[in-house]
Amino acid sequence: MQEPKYKRVVLKISGEALAGEKEFGIDQDVINSIADEIKEIRECGIDVAVVVGGGNIWRGRNSPQMDRATADYMGMLATVINALALQDALEKRNIETRVQTAIEMKEIAEPYIRRRAMRHLEKGRVVIFAAGTGNPFFSTDTAAALRAAEIEADVILLAKKVDGVYDSDPMKNPNAQKFDSLEYIDILNRGLGVMDSTATSLCMDNKIPIIVFGINKAGNIKKAALGENIGTFVKGG
């Protein structure tokens, strides 16, 4: 078995990725595929924490007529739905899983407590962080960066629909050029849209590398977790 490069990872999965080829909702085949790969990562001895987005159900900033804070709270609830779906898929594969939410809803999940999350990871459980940071105006990318710093993760695995970071939108520009590696400051200066500026700055300040890769190809999550050359690697200078 290949020796993993990282001991503890935060896997950030966008809500859009969970929708698969649909534009809305949860694609159970995608959830099952992600759960299979997380199981493989755990079997390699890697601690896994997951941050899920909610864009497949609700995205606050797409509702200009609604109060932004209210819309963002609705988006946080959408991430909880996704987290519970992923937890169910993992537990069907006999992977012990805990969902922790930044907004307390004790009937369905634990409240986020850093020490408890660390203890779960030490016991080999997968921890899914839901409800973002618990605050409006912050994205789930920022939640991923914050949780990665708090649990002392070695890397953030940023799973997207595209297979890395490009100099322009590859969906619109067939001549877009992919970057093999970048520095945090390049993302900020060039507005490349890998993560929002708050999340990128958090990673830069805490020296947390980011691997941006495509989730659509089976095996990519495991490859990224093992440290194989995949997607775009983001780090400091």
Score class of each variant (00 low, 15 high):
I34Q: 06
V99P: 08
V30P: 03
T101R: 11
E40L: 15
F233H: 04
I230D: 05
G55P: 01
M118F: 14
L157I: 06
E183M: 15
K222N: 06
P136R: 06
P136V: 08
M66V: 13
A159G: 05
D47Q: 11
A224Y: 09
A117W: 04
I185T: 15
S168F: 09
L188S: 00
G132F: 03
L121P: 01
G191R: 08
K161N: 12
M105R: 10
Y6Q: 11
L182P: 03
S139T: 04
S197C: 11
M105H: 10
E23L: 14
L90M: 07
A109W: 03
V194P: 02
D67L: 14
D36F: 12
S168C: 11
N62T: 15
A35P: 09
T101F: 14
S33M: 12
M105L: 14
Y112T: 10
N32W: 12
K106R: 14
G75R: 03
A143T: 05
E21N: 10
E110G: 10
M204V: 09
A149P: 10
E91K: 11
W58Y: 08
D72W: 07
G20C: 09
P4F: 06
N135C: 11
I211A: 00
G60M: 13
T142C: 10
A159Q: 03
D141W: 01
E21L: 15
R8D: 07
G132L: 06
M204Y: 07
A199V: 11
F179T: 09
G15W: 00
N206F: 12
F24G: 13
L86M: 08
N229S: 13
I221Y: 04
L86F: 02
R68W: 01
G231F: 07
D27L: 13
S14T: 08
V51L: 13
R98Y: 05
K178L: 07
A89T: 03
S33N: 13
K161I: 12
G132S: 07
K123V: 15
D180K: 11
V165S: 04
M74T: 10
K222H: 00
A153N: 11
E91P: 14
N135F: 12
D196T: 02
N135K: 10
S197Q: 14
Y6S: 14
L157S: 05
R68S: 02
M195E: 02
G236H: 13
T70W: 14
G231S: 06
E228H: 03
I34S: 05
N189H: 12
E110R: 13
R42P: 08
V51N: 03
K207E: 14
R93W: 06
A224E: 09
K12A: 05
I221P: 00
G193S: 00
Q2V: 15
D167V: 10
I208Y: 03
S63D: 15
T101W: 15
V127F: 01
Q2H: 15
N82Q: 10
K178H: 02
K172E: 10
I103P: 05
K39A: 10
R125C: 15
R68H: 02
G231Y: 02
G55T: 03
K160F: 06
A145Y: 00
I156A: 01
G214D: 07
N175P: 10
P174N: 01
A176R: 04
N62G: 12
